[in-house]
Amino acid sequence: MFGPSLTSIFRSRWMALIWAAMVIWFAVDVAGSAPNPSANRSIAATADATGAPVANEDVAALRRFTQGH
């Protein structure tokens, strides 16, 4: 399609490593890094997806339900 053919890339170990590094770099660039879940913890404890306030008791009940206690 475009670029070197796969057979010519994998003839050399170094070219294969460079090709793999470029694929990983492209994937990270497109997908971005994972979000930090602790950054949203205070927001999740005070509001739901619609922005309505959530009581701490509701959060505790949901935690107990999901953890099976």
Score class of each variant (00 low, 15 high):
Met1Phe: 08
Met1Trp: 03
Met1Ser: 14
Met1Asp: 05
Met1Pro: 08
Met1Asn: 10
Gly3Pro: 00
Gly3Asn: 02
Gly3Glu: 03
Gly3Arg: 05
Pro4Asn: 09
Pro4Ile: 10
Ser5Glu: 02
Ser5Ala: 04
Ser5Lys: 14
Leu6Pro: 01
Thr7Met: 12
Thr7Ser: 15
Ser8His: 09
Ser8Trp: 10
Ser8Phe: 11
Ser8Gln: 07
Ile9His: 00
Ile9Trp: 00
Phe10Ser: 04
Phe10Gln: 09
Phe10Thr: 11
Arg11Asp: 07
Ser12Pro: 00
Ser12Gly: 01
Arg13Gln: 07
Arg13Glu: 03
Trp14His: 08
Met15Gln: 12
Met15Pro: 02
Met15Phe: 12
Leu17Ile: 11
Leu17His: 08
Ile18Pro: 02
Ile18Val: 12
Trp19Val: 00
Trp19Gln: 01
Trp19Cys: 00
Trp19Gly: 00
Ala20Leu: 05
Met22Cys: 09
Met22Gly: 03
Val23Asn: 06
Ile24Lys: 05
Trp25Phe: 12
Trp25Met: 05
Trp25Gly: 07
Trp25Lys: 06
Phe26Ile: 05
Ala27Lys: 07
Val28Ser: 13
Val28Glu: 08
Val28Tyr: 07
Asp29Leu: 14
Asp29Cys: 14
Asp29Ile: 10
Asp29His: 15
Val30Tyr: 14
Val30Pro: 02
Gly32Val: 07
Ser33Cys: 07
Ser33Pro: 01
Ser33Tyr: 15
Ser33Ile: 15
Ala34His: 14
Ala34Gly: 06
Ala34Met: 07
Ala34Leu: 12
Pro35Arg: 06
Asn36Trp: 04
Ser38Gln: 09
Ala39Tyr: 12
Asn40Asp: 11
Asn40Gly: 04
Asn40Cys: 01
Asn40Ser: 06
Arg41Ile: 02
Arg41Pro: 00
Ser42Gly: 02
Ile43Asn: 10
Ile43Gly: 03
Ala44Asn: 05
Ala44Pro: 00
Ala44Met: 08
Ala44Phe: 04
Thr46Glu: 12
Asp48Met: 00
Thr50Phe: 06
Thr50Asp: 09
Gly51Gln: 03
Gly51Tyr: 06
Ala52Thr: 11
Ala52Gly: 05
Pro53Gly: 07
Pro53Cys: 13
Ala55Asn: 11
Ala55Asp: 05
Asn56Val: 09
Asn56Ser: 13
Asn56Cys: 04
Glu57His: 10
Glu57Gln: 11
Glu57Trp: 06
Asp58Gln: 15
Asp58Asn: 12
Val59Gly: 02
Ala60Arg: 09
Ala60Lys: 14
Ala60His: 08
Ala60Tyr: 04
Ala61Cys: 06
Ala61Ile: 09
Leu62Met: 15
Arg63Phe: 02
Arg63His: 07
Arg64Phe: 08
Arg64Ala: 13
Phe65Ile: 09
Phe65Ala: 10
Thr66His: 11
Thr66Asn: 14
Gln67Lys: 15
Gln67Tyr: 08
Gln67Glu: 07
Gly68Ala: 01
Gly68Val: 00
Gly68His: 02
Gly68Ser: 11
His69Ser: 13
His69Gln: 15
His69Trp: 05
